[in-house]
Design a binder for these strands. Sequence first.
DNA 1: GCATATTTGTCCGTATGTATA
DNA 2: CTATACATACGGACAAATATG
Lengths: 222, 222
Amino acid sequence: MGLEADRGLLSRTSTAERVAGVLRTRIAEGFFRPGVRLSEQDIGTALGVSRNTLREAFRLLTHERLLVHELNRGVFVRVPSVEDVRDIYRVRKLVECAAVREVTGKPAEFAKIASTVEDGDRAAKQSRWQELGTANIRFHAEIVALTGSARMVETMQALTAELRLVFHVMADPRRFHERYLPRNHEILDVLATGDGIRTAELLATYLDDAEAQLVEAYAERT
Amino acid sequence: MGLEADRGLLSRTSTAERVAGVLRTRIAEGFFRPGVRLSEQDIGTALGVSRNTLREAFRLLTHERLLVHELNRGVFVRVPSVEDVRDIYRVRKLVECAAVREVTGKPAEFAKIASTVEDGDRAAKQSRWQELGTANIRFHAEIVALTGSARMVETMQALTAELRLVFHVMADPRRFHERYLPRNHEILDVLATGDGIRTAELLATYLDDAEAQLVEAYAERT
DNA sequence: GCATATTTGTCCGTATGTATA
DNA sequence: CTATACATACGGACAAATATG
């Protein structure tokens, strides 16, 4: 449902890819929560696609680590483990810190990041916590974009989608995102001075703190 | 062909995954060269699997960038562009340099890397250039493993598979790999002293040189 | 432990759309 | 422009595995 609209002749993507897109957003926004099974039958009829097509979509999302495929049991929305959280932050720290360390002063890029930080401010002021979360995520995505590598950006996008699963396991976006707002400002300021080394240090402790907070919250939950 | 053997009841992976594995190695070893089209019909009958299953395998490999999927035209073995080569090396430089920079002295890891370098020496002495190439690739994989991140290792593995496509576009493994042997030794030596910064610098110029050589060879070929 | 119902895994036939000779 | 070949997508079928009572 909501697929037929895109069904026009101008659609250049395959149905499987479109189905994957729908499921991806459903998962990202927490409609399909971590751990639930995605029935081929149910979703197939709900979206009006055949089982074969749906399975192709499942494969795509499985490869993105959003679903897990248990043989002869079906696909489930992934439930990231604590070790997954640690691994995700290991990657983030390595990539994001390296990205800012060798930064070459590109004013246009900085302006874009600055506006993202401001978006976060505005969202926080209006108590729109969901929005604050996405602004925060975009902040980090733009840091990755400083590398100038399309592959790096894509890889980290997938990692972020995974991270969203972690957030959904424990919810409460305010508690998690609000405290990082002032630090976003600080990092951006130092970055703008061109001191990559110092920025990298700030980012490292930032990410260490975030990881510790998530790991702790995770331990409580289970 | 070669699939029936694994067809037993004890196989815990799906057929699609096994098919993907077969195709992956076929592509890696250059049996399917960059640019050729992979017919659903032909390969399906050759491997004795249905088109549905084969399409699932294609999706997997497309997501790994080994195949490109042109809508209603079929799948082709990817032909990486020069820009792809640049992007691949941007990622390698960022990740590998970061990996060695913060290295904590783990003797066991160093020993493993050392033996890989020696494997390369031996292969070169015996003029086994293909082997030299894989030893070289493993050398870098082990550097990435120093990060301790499963995701990072997996991501870089996929990147290496892509890089193999680049090699197949222009072949001649000797010319490309031989010259880096002494530098592998040098890097390993400095790494063992614990000087991560200096190792990172060496690796950076190493990778810059390799990239330049590939880009140049690419320009000639087309 | 067993029998049954459900769901997945795999394959096939076919209608439609798209690209190309 | 027509014809051919092929990919796309659907629906149905059956075996195999799993879950449920």
